[in-house]
Simulated assay, not measured.
Amino acid sequence: MHIQETFRALADPTRREILLHLSRQQMTIGEVTEKFEITRAAVKKHLNILEEGQLISVHVQGRERINRLEAQGLSAVSDWIGYFDQFWDQHLGALKNAVENSENAKRQAIKGKI
């Protein structure tokens, strides 16, 4: 399932940082490696996982492999998380009503004392 590979790719802080770098510009493996204190092989492994999660794409340009952020890969994650927004909306709506009812009750009590 695509969403599982995407979440797997996002689970690692190094991969999330790689995505941040790629959001600013396309980079070769060497350029990505320069940003971290890990081996080129480790960076390559992270890039492979990001590609499996459909968060980046790799394009060959001469002898270079250019890594590019694929922002639409995040849409599946956004959609999945968005589903749960409805529960926050319901709870926040209930909280708003409770606060408003409490304020109204206080106003009524103050009016009753006057």
Rank of each mutant, 00 (worst) to 15 (best):
I49H: 02
I81L: 15
Q54C: 07
A76T: 12
W88L: 15
A71S: 11
H46C: 05
Q54P: 00
L95H: 12
E52P: 11
W80L: 05
Y83C: 04
L69C: 05
I66L: 15
V77Y: 02
E52L: 03
S78N: 03
R65V: 11
N67R: 14
G53W: 00
V43M: 05
N97G: 04
R63H: 12
F84T: 00
Q54K: 07
W88R: 01
A42I: 05
A71H: 14
A98D: 00
F87D: 10
E64Q: 12
K45G: 01
S78L: 12
G53P: 11
V58D: 02
G73H: 08
W80P: 05
I81P: 00
I81E: 01
V43I: 12
G73S: 05
D79H: 07
Q61A: 15
S78M: 10
E52M: 08
S75I: 13
H59F: 04
R68N: 09
A94K: 10
L50G: 01
S75H: 11
I66V: 15
R63T: 13
A94Q: 13
L74Y: 03
R68L: 06
L95T: 07
S78P: 00
S78H: 05
A42G: 05
E51C: 05
E51F: 06
G82E: 02
V99F: 14
G53N: 04
E100R: 12
Y83R: 07
Q61E: 13
A76V: 13
S57T: 14
E52T: 06
G73L: 12
A98T: 09
Q72G: 07
L50H: 02
L92S: 03
H91V: 08
L55W: 03
F84M: 04
K44I: 09
A42R: 01
E100G: 03
E64L: 14
A42H: 01
A94C: 03
I56M: 05
N48Q: 11
G82I: 03
H91S: 10
I66F: 09
L47E: 04
D89E: 07
W88G: 01
E51W: 04
E52G: 02
I49F: 04
G62I: 05
W88K: 00
A98L: 12
A94I: 07
G93N: 12
F84R: 00
S57K: 12
V58Y: 08
R63V: 10
V43S: 03
I56V: 14
N48M: 04
L92V: 03
S75F: 08
H91Y: 13
I66K: 09
V99P: 15
L74H: 03
D85Q: 06
Q90T: 07
G53R: 01
V99C: 04
L74N: 07
K96T: 10
L69S: 04
H59C: 10
Q72Y: 10
H91T: 06
R65S: 13
Q72K: 10
K44T: 14
N67D: 04
D85M: 10
F84D: 06
N48T: 12
K96Q: 11
